[in-house]
Design a protein around this nucleic acid. Structure first.
Length: 289
DNA sequence: AGGTCGGCCTGGCAGC
DNA sequence: TGCTGCCAGGCCGACC
């Protein structure tokens, strides 16, 4: 499940490998990837374009091209981006070949390949023809970047104010803060000692501060560990991330809480598998059952 | 309008 | 052993 740290890891690795290179061929083998745009239309728009830069916004990968077009890619659940994979991996949905920097000796430089592998075919891509169109789209669906100045404690308090849904549902809402998914929501709530099912609007000022810090700490720990590879996620060279070995509560049902030793509980909140420590994250109301 | 839920999709695994 | 069926979940659209 690529979330902000996983996408950040991919972009940091891939950006220097593709920046300045030109898309020589674009093969879109799965029509769902570019839908509703037909694969041939997207391929035609991309071939011959030089990659200006690769960057991340939330969980999206943004390919910026020399003609002012932008390809916005989302890995969803299971997609990975591999650079020059050997041998050819399974579930290839898209294959891009990149030639050297445009110039007199471009042909002498070896071509490289970037492939999108996606067993479940949830991954998507969308083409934008201007920076303004791209920003409009992001503004409609994404809140602030967690590490940007706009994501403050005051902002978080305002974003959850008077909301009745569980705080975990709010963290998973990309319009509240961009890039947090199921893993990092659990880890952030544990760090903040906040129960995932607590109503968002019922958090105290102190808890909002802790949660703000918890989100940043969990995401930074994930980036430092180069992402979590529970099953599908891989680096662009096929190597696994290591954050799955450092989870504090996520996917640790029955194992001891690293802080108090109580057994971690698995439950469902906002329709998602959710892990928390009953000792450190007391439920909203004292319940006896 | 805020909140919840089902659909998308398939590999992997529990259970019979 | 082999088969069935269910779960995982980011995001979006349908619905209440």
């Amino acid at each position: 499940m690529p979330e902000l740290p996983e996408v950040e890891t991919i972009v940091r690795q891939l950006a220097p490998l593709v920046a300045g290179r030109t898309l020589a061929t674009v093969e879109i083998l799965d029509g769902r990837w570019s839908a509703p745009l037909p694969p041939v239309a997207l391929a035609k728009a991309l071939v011959g374009r030089r990659v200006e830069q690769l960057r991340r916004r939330g969980k999206y990968i943004v390919w910026e091209f020399d003609d002012g077009h932008y390809l916005v890619q989302h890995l969803r659940m299971t997609a990975v981006l591999l650079y020059d994979p050997v041998p050819d991996p399974p579930h290839v949905r898209v294959r891009l070949t990149l030639s050297g920097p445009s110039g007199s000796n471009a042909r002498r430089l070896p071509a490289h390949t970037v492939v999108v592998c996606d067993p479940r075919r949830f991954g998507t891509a969308e083409l934008f023809d201007s920076a303004a169109a791209l920003e409009r789209s992001f503004a409609a669906r994404l809140g602030p970047e967690p590490f940007a100045d706009a994501f403050t404690v005051a902002y978080l308090k305002r974003a959850v104010r008077a909301r009745t849904r569980p705080i975990k549902a709010a963290l998973l809402d990309q319009r509240v803060v961009a890039g947090v998914g199921n893993i990092y929501a659990d880890e952030a709530l544990f760090r903040a000692s906040v129960h995932p099912a607590r109503r968002a609007g019922q958090l105290s000022a102190r808890q909002c501060e802790s949660l703000h810090a918890g989100v940043l700490e969990a995401l930074q720990a994930g980036i430092d560990a180069r992402g979590a590879s529970i099953d599908d996620f891989r680096h662009v060279d096929g190597v696994r991330g290591s954050f799955q070995d450092r989870f504090l509560v996520h996917r640790r049902a029955g194992q001891p809480c690293p802080r108090c030793g109580a057994a971690v509980i698995k439950t469902v909140v906002a329709g998602r598998g959710t892990y928390y420590c009953p000792g450190c994250q007391p439920p909203p109301r004292a319940r006896r059952n």
